[in-house]
Amino acid sequence: MSDELKVLTRRDFVRGTVAGALAASLPAYALQPKRGPRSSMVVLVRNQKALGAGNSVDVAVLRQMVTDTVTRVTKASSGQEAWRSLFKPTDIVGLVATPHLNPTHGELVEAIRAALVDAGIPAGNLRNAQGGPDQAKACTGLIALPALKAHWLTGLGTVLKNYITYSGSPSSYHAQDNAKLGEIWNMPHVKGKTRLVLVDALRPLCDKGPQPDPRYMWNYCGLIAGTDPVAVETICLKIIEEKRRALRGEPWPLSPPPLCVAAADLTYNLGTSKLSEIKIERFGWVQDSLV
């Protein structure tokens, strides 16, 4: 971001002019047509028994949570039907999990893999698709499977950041350029392939991520899912913000603010970042849902 462009500052947030500043600071997309109203649904499924002693995962509980989640996202009557509505047996399905530093639980990845196979997707068509652009190119459909965490460089390091390696140049999206993370979702080898975003919120991290700091981790025991990546990210953001407020007993905004969320909506048209446009469908454990 050069000085020739509008430099976004704290004052834009205080004024409530982030949208305009983002457009001016990301000129390639500044001429996007004005955004119309949107509507998205995000499913939140929680079960306090998902994590047991030592935070070990109860696999049976988790598998049921996955089924509950995907059937609500797709409005299908069964897990098999739900997965079949998302993928065909001929699809090459990429599972895009967070590989390290508070990674996606392996049990969740395996639960989804098993459910896909049970729904008739050949095991040979499933692949771990986290990695460079070739991983995305090789897939006809993707499931974004990030873990919920705050990130000290980008504010939030969950849905939008999960595809950073698909850019082929992750460092181009760090620091001041994190607002451009949504751009990756519009790259030709990525665009339109994501059929489901399913966030591992079993044990999120609300500060100091991505390095693990157990002081800021808690057993939320949830899965958050939808087909609109920005809406899912927005709900994730709300949960993190509310947890931070609860921990400190005072406003504790993410710093830096997650610019990438608003930009994904306003600049890259990937979905909605407005809570008023998001319907949350809740299922299961309700205590301290934070949203």
Binding site: V7, R10, F13, Q176, S255, P256, P257, L259
Partner: peptide, 11 residues
């Protein structure tokens, strides 16, 4: 910026 956000650029 992780302590007190001023700008995503090094102003």
């Amino acid at each position: 910026n992780s302590v007190y956000f001023l700008s995503p650029s090094n102003i």
